[in-house]
Measured scan of single mutants.
Amino acid sequence: VTLFVALYDYEARTEDDLSFHKGEKFQILNSSEGDWWEARSLTTGETGYIPSNYAAPV
């Protein structure tokens, strides 16, 4: 399992994006889409796309 942590807060701009807060942890589901990764929040259980430059490996 690849775990990442949010470096900044992010507010979803589309219904496919995932809103999150700094410090929140994610499981990365798909990182082959370039700058946007499909991720599941370990806090909320929700799935959506996150900007890859807002996350770092745990």
Rank of each mutant, 00 (worst) to 15 (best):
L42N: 04
T2K: 12
N30A: 09
V1W: 14
H21A: 12
N30G: 10
F26D: 00
D9Q: 05
A39H: 00
S52D: 03
T47I: 14
E46F: 10
V1I: 13
A6N: 00
F4S: 03
Y49L: 15
A6G: 04
K22D: 01
E33W: 11
L18Y: 05
W37I: 08
E46M: 14
F26A: 00
L29Y: 07
H21S: 14
V5P: 00
A39K: 00
G48A: 03
Y54Q: 04
G48V: 03
T44L: 02
G45M: 07
E15L: 11
V1H: 13
D16E: 13
R40E: 07
P57K: 07
Y8E: 07
S41L: 10
G45L: 07
I50H: 00
E33Q: 14
D17C: 14
L18R: 01
E15W: 08
A12E: 04
Q27D: 07
H21F: 13
Y8P: 00
V5K: 04
D35Q: 10
R40Q: 11
L7M: 08
L42H: 05
Y49A: 05
L18N: 00
S41V: 07
A56H: 08
A55S: 06
P51G: 03
V58P: 05
A12G: 12
Y10K: 01
G45P: 00
Y8T: 06
R13D: 07
P51S: 05
T2S: 11
L29P: 05
W36G: 03
F4H: 06
D17T: 15
S19I: 02
S52L: 06
G34L: 11
Y49D: 01
L18E: 00
L3R: 04
R40F: 11
T43S: 12
G34K: 13
Y49W: 14
E11H: 10
T44I: 01
L29E: 05
D17R: 15
H21W: 08
D16P: 03
I50V: 06
W37R: 02
I50Y: 02
H21L: 12
P57F: 06
F4Q: 03
V58M: 12
N30M: 07
D16W: 15
L7H: 03
T14W: 13
I28S: 00
S19M: 03
L42S: 04
T2V: 13
I28F: 03
G23V: 01
A12K: 09
S41C: 06
A12W: 02
D16Q: 14
T2N: 13
L42I: 10
D17F: 15
I28M: 06
R13W: 08
P57M: 08
L3Q: 07
K22V: 10
E11Q: 12
I50G: 01
P51N: 09
F20W: 01
A55F: 15
I28D: 00
T2Y: 12
T43H: 10
Y54E: 02
E38S: 07
Y49V: 07
L7W: 04
I28R: 03
Y10P: 00
D9H: 06
L42W: 07
A6D: 00
T14C: 15
R13I: 11
D9V: 05
